[in-house]
Each structure stands twice: as structure tokens, then as C-alpha cells.
């Protein structure tokens, strides 16, 4: 399953590099990749593949991987099927930071200098840190308080975002576009930021498969089976927050991937994290690349917000999957 999924992701990536306003034949895509790896970007198709499409396609892939990994980790650690990467307020925090930067950036120069991604990253981290500080009791992180703190902080910040948007209606469209997510402004630097965090997070996530399994039997039993539950929760919250904040800051708030990809994987291969974690990463990447491909081609030359595509297409698809697995059972 893992090898097959990896191959499928490869095919999806190639397809996404080939398709666009100027079609590049699959053979030329492979040629362009090989030439580019040798430092030669000469033909027009090489430029399209390397400079126009590759950053965007790869950013979609790493964002999807990051969100799906964070989502599957939260669903296990909080033992909550509704958990997604934004549960602790990362998206609302980033959204508020982005809105403030877009609306007030024109008059406050330091905001404009920092730029939307940096501000969004910082406000996402600050929001989750606040939720953790509020919920913390001694060295422990009681799950229910943590989720409540995150959800309440998130709603307050969403209200703040609405307020900022209403204050300057000329820039409302810009904020809304950011909130719905887009890879239109992808660049290699953003890809590098996410890759750096994933290089840390993916091995950690794969290694922690047994710990994630243990969390499913409840915190007391997990402790009695030898898991230092509190330390593990801290570790997961820190890594998942870094992943989510980075993903949101470069791509906006893309819903659905982090919630539903892990569920789809679970329906396909069962709940054990030995399979669930690697497949969530691969499927999350492939799903978001395909969603972005749809976002930029369906109404070309106009673009759809990728967050709209993920929910609009992914929702019904998941419901069908859910229905079919229930009928089989």
C-alpha cells in the first residue's frame, strides 16, 4: 500500500507539472526535471516546469502532507474524530495576523516589511501557545481544557478578523482570498520552509506509531502500558503546531485536508498508525496537488481558491467513501 501510494503520488506530481495553460508532454516534463537537476534550464518547457509549476506543485504537496500529518496526530492524541490541525486556533490566529497585515500594511510599514506569511506564522504560534498556557495545569495538558481554550480563542480571533475586514472594505476581497487558501504565489522559499519542518516531523511521526496507537486506549491505560502520556502530548502539540502554522502562513486556510484525509486512510487500511501515518502523508500530498490542479484549470484563466475546491469536491467524495464502508460492514 505504501509503495503503491508513493508511486501514485509520483504520477500525480508529474501530471500536475504537465498540465496548465501551456501543456507540456510527460516526456518533456521528465526531460526538464533531469536537465534541471544538472543545472540546465534552457528550453521554454524547462522554464515552465521549474520556475512556474514546480514551486507551486511542490508547495501544494508539502502543505497537504503537513496538514494530513498534523490532523492524524491530533485525532489520535485527542481521541477525537473531529480534530483537525486547526483545532487549537492556529488557523484563526494566522487568519487574524494575515488580515491585519493586508488591511493595515499600507499604513504601517513594519507590517508590510514582515509580510503576510511571517506575521501569519507568528500569530498562529502565539494563539496556540496562549491556548496551551490557559489549559496547562502544572506540567500536564488536560485534553478537554486544551480543546476548549483553542476553540474559544479561535472564535474570538475569527471575530477579530471579521472586524478588521469590515473596517476597510476595499481590502476585504484580498483578506477573503487569503483565508480561502491559494498556491498562486508559491515560491521556492516557502517550499523550503515547509520541507525543513517536515524533515523533522515526518521521521518523528513515523517513529511514534506505537505511541499513537497507545493513545487510543485512553490516557490512563496508555500510561500503564508504558507511555509517558504528558510528555508525548507536549511533543505532538509543538510539532503539529509548527507544521500547521507553516502550512497556513504560506498557503492560507485550506480546510478539509487535515480532517478528512486521515479518515479516508483509516477507512481504507484500518486504525493502526504503522500504516495510517505514512499513508496520510502521501495521500494528503496527492490530494492537495490534485485540488490545486483543479483550482487552476477548471475555470482557466481564472483561478478558484484551493480551499473551496478541497471542501466542494472532497466532501461528497468522502461521504460516498463513508457510506460504502458502512454498507460493507
Amino acid at each position: 500500500m505504501r509503495t503503491g501510494s508513493l508511486a501514485a503520488l509520483g504520477v500525480v506530481l508529474l501530471a500536475a507539472l504537465a498540465v496548465g495553460s501551456v501543456a507540456v508532454a510527460p516526456g518533456d516534463v521528465l526531460g526538464a526535471i533531469l536537465r534541471g537537476l544538472q543545472g540546465q534550464v534552457e528550453q521554454a518547457s524547462d522554464v515552465i516546469v521549474w520556475q512556474v509549476r514546480a514551486p507551486r506543485v511542490l508547495l501544494a504537496a508539502v502543505t497537504g502532507a503537513a496538514l494530513a500529518l498534523a490532523g492524524s496526530a491530533y485525532q489520535a492524541v485527542f481521541r477525537n474524530p473531529l480534530a483537525d490541525p486547526y483545532l487549537l486556533g492556529a488557523a484563526s490566529g494566522a487568519g487574524f495576523g494575515a488580515a491585519v497585515t493586508i488591511v493595515y500594511g499600507a499604513s504601517v510599514t513594519w507590517l508590510a516589511t514582515l509580510g503576510v506569511p511571517t506575521v501569519a506564522f507568528v500569530t498562529a504560534l502565539v494563539t496556540v501557545s496562549l491556548a496551551v498556557l490557559m489549559a496547562r495545569v502544572g506540567g500536564t495538558l488536560p485534553t478537554v481544557s486544551l480543546i476548549l481554550a483553542g476553540v474559544v480563542l479561535g472564535s474570538s480571533l475569527s471575530a477579530g478578523t471579521s472586524f478588521v475586514m469590515l473596517a476597510d472594505q476595499e481590502r476585504t476581497a484580498g483578506v477573503l482570498a487569503w483565508l480561502l487558501g491559494s498556491f498562486a504565489f508559491a515560491n521556492w522559499r516557502d517550499v523550503l520552509v515547509l520541507v525543513t519542518i517536515l524533515v523533522l516531523a515526518i521521521p518523528a511521526g513515523l517513529a511514534a506509531r506505537r505511541a499513537f496507537d497507545l493513545m487510543l486506549v485512553g490516557e490512563a491505560s496508555a500510561k500503564q502500558l508504558g507511555l509517558p502520556v504528558e510528555r508525548f502530548k507536549w511533543l505532538v502539540v509543538v510539532i503539529a503546531t509548527l507544521l500547521t502554522a507553516a502550512a497556513v502562513s504560506v498557503a492560507g486556510v485550506i480546510g478539509f485536508v487535515g480532517l478528512v484525509v486521515p479518515h479516508a486512510v483509516r477507512l481504507a487500511v484500518g486504525p493502526e498508525h504503522r500504516e495510517l501515518i505514512p499513508l496520510s502523508i502521501l495521500w494528503g500530498a496527492a490530494f492537495l496537488v490534485l485540488a490545486d490542479l483543479a483550482a487552476r484549470t477548471v475555470l482557466a484563466p481564472a483561478e478558484l481558491p484551493v480551499g473551496v475546491v478541497t471542501s466542494l469536491v472532497g466532501g461528497p467524495f468522502f461521504l460516498i467513501l463513508l457510506r460504502r464502508s458502512r454498507m460493507r460492514a
Binding site: V217, Q224, G270, P271
Partner: peptide
């Protein structure tokens, strides 16, 4: 334990 949560799909 007296009552344990046992994930059904395991």
C-alpha cells in the same frame, strides 16, 4: 482496568 476504551477496529 475495570472499563477500558478498546478501539473497535483494532
Amino acid at each position: 482496568p475495570q472499563r477500558s476504551d478498546l478501539p473497535d477496529a483494532f
